[in-house]
Every structure is written in C-alpha cells, then in structure tokens.
Amino acid sequence: MSVFYLAAALFLLGTILLGLIRVLRGPGSGDRMLAAQLFGTTGVTILLLLSMTLEESALIDVALVFALLAVVAAVAFVRQHGLPEPPDTPTHRRNPESTESRESNDDR
C-alpha cells in the first residue's frame, strides 16, 4: 500500500515539474500565479500521501498549514496595486479621505 502512495506522490511531483514550464513561459503574471496556486494544491496532496507512506501523522499538520496559507500569495498578488506615494515627507502624510478617493479610482 505504501508503495502505491509513494508512486502517486512521485507522479504528482512530476506534474509539478511539468507545470513549471508554464511559470517559465508565462506569458502574463496571472498565468505564473495560477501555476503557483496549482503547485500549492499538489504540494498539499503530496504531503498527505507522504504522511501515509512514512507513517508520520505530523505531516497532516504541515499539509493543513499549507492549505491554510495557500491564498496569501494570491491575495498579495492581486491587492498590491495602488500603493500610496512615499509617506516619509510631511506633504505626503497620510490622510484617510485621500486614501478613500484614490482607492475608488483603483477599483473601477
């Protein structure tokens, strides 16, 4: 049984390495991000299969943490746009109203 799990994990590792072609080719950053998302899911699955092969139930916790934080990179990728100007100088001190108006522009 554990040979089967290991073979399945190896197969999934192969799909990750194949999927890297999409990261290398792009063309857009959206494509690259999607590929990374797929790798995250595949990595979770590999971890679950390895936890069966190696009989190490702590690996389920590792998979849980991966699943929990899989979305962070994608959220960073999408929400990073529209950072404000450098706030270091007094003229650029932040004030809430201008932030609001700028953001409504962004989201159009």
Partner: peptide, 10 residues
C-alpha cells in the same frame, strides 16, 4: 521611516 500602508480597499 514611516510605513507605506497598503491601502484598505472595498
């Protein structure tokens, strides 16, 4: 210096 806060957005 002070931080560049990532703006809150709806």
């Amino acid at each position: 210096g002070r931080h560049d806060l990532i703006p809150a957005r709806p």
